[in-house]
Design a protein around this nucleic acid. Structure first.
Lengths: 218, 218
DNA sequence: CTAATAGTGTCTCTGAGACACTATTTG
DNA sequence: CAAATAGTGTCTCAGAGACACTATTAG
């Protein structure tokens, strides 16, 4: 890593782009912003000495008024001609936030697996695809690791969330049996709805059993 | 992504480092080079307009005489002070090559899961750990995707390879039943060894069944 | 023949998936 | 009471894992 001095070569610009995913009753959504090249993911250039995750944070607060998310590196997009402004590498990040914590004026685009999603500028559609894969992989191993649900929730709410994340219905009884052992009861029950009240649970950090991972991966 | 012009900020140096993994009778090994800061992964700085994978290729041919590998992005290491020469981001890559294709003078270090592996410079030990995770994940889904074995092989050779990759013994009969359906027979058998000759197989691109993935992930 | 290795028949046990039943609420 | 939703008992079926048996070579 010392073939030449650090200063001998021109350096690329380094950017970050963030696919912020969320879920509401329509399903899986991604936050987009309206830029000069059409719809795009929020992003920014890396400032001197800054860490990528800090730049991602800055991009979100600047462009979408979002804060305090945790980011996952997805992939570095490095095609030399991917940005007509010059040589720009971009580190794609994934993040997930509950819909309720988004500003009301944010633009959301539905993610559906069948549409190639050519509606995003640059290579951002591919980034979204990476973000969804990453989200699904993480949700298959832990219970709602990105805390899209509040601290306490019922199994029904959890199942609806997972159905949105994976884009398909999940069997009620099997789902319950697979996830409860990675949950902790609050002892309380939901009230108000029709029907028998549902037990209210909390996340524990526990790994989901292998069977749950298999159900969700399949 | 256009808060300022491209030229307004100082830019980081971007490097690539490659963890080349291989397997021999000692188990899983990684290629290292002896640099000014001690043992390190082969790496280089990104040249203007170059793709990361091309830089990785160049690093390997320059530093270790290796060529024609396929790389997998692992993670971008971006701690501002990770390199005392200045602000250097490094994209860690993983690759895997059969031991027979390595030059004879290459330095190999054994990877064993219990040693924290503080023997590598920079943050390279962590990169190796990422590379192993990535290799295991890929090998759990496909049969020897990095072609560490030659085109034709027996189930025994394949099992020995997987035992090295996962660092634990695998049950002979279950392993066979899980992998054969993702293999294609050549019709021929191995000769020479003691005992009944083993059928010789070829890879197909087929995905391994879910059971195999579970066995290996567990 | 024996030794050695390859490959399979088969049993058991776990657990996913389906279905239907019970449990507990509202109105 | 009926309707609605939560949660469970239970059956079946598939498949992993273990074990031992058969198959095919060398010597």
């Amino acid at each position: 890593m010392n073939d030449k001095s650090l200063t001998d070569y021109p350096r690329p610009s380094v950017a970050v782009d963030v696919a912020v995913l969320t879920v509401d009753d329509r399903g899986l959504l991604v936050v987009v912003v309206d830029g000069p090249r059409g719809l795009a993911l929020p992003g920014t250039f890396l400032h001197p000495g800054e860490r990528l995750s800090d730049a991602a944070d800055r991009a979100l607060s600047t462009k979408a008024g979002l804060t305090g998310t945790d980011f996952h590196q997805l992939a570095m997009f490095d095609a030399p001609d991917r940005d007509d402004r010059g040589w720009v590498l971009s580190m794609a990040h994934g993040a997930a936030l509950p819909a309720g914590r988004l500003p009301h004026d944010v633009r959301l685009v539905r993610i559906d697996d069948r549409s190639p999603g050519e509606l995003l500028a640059f290579d951002h559609a591919e980034m979204v695809s990476h973000a969804v894969d990453d989200l699904r992989a993480r949700y298959a191993r832990h219970v709602d690791p990105s805390e899209l649900l509040p601290e306490e929730f019922t199994v029904l709410e959890l199942r609806r969330l997972y159905e949105a994340v994976y884009g398909r219905p999940l069997p009620k009884d099997t789902f319950r049996r697979l996830v409860v052992e990675a949950l902790e009861t609050t002892g309380r029950s939901s009230s108000g709805g029709a029907g028998r009240p549902a037990e209210i649970f909390r996340r524990t950090g526990t790994e989901l059993p292998a069977g749950a991972t298999a159900l969700l991966a399949g």
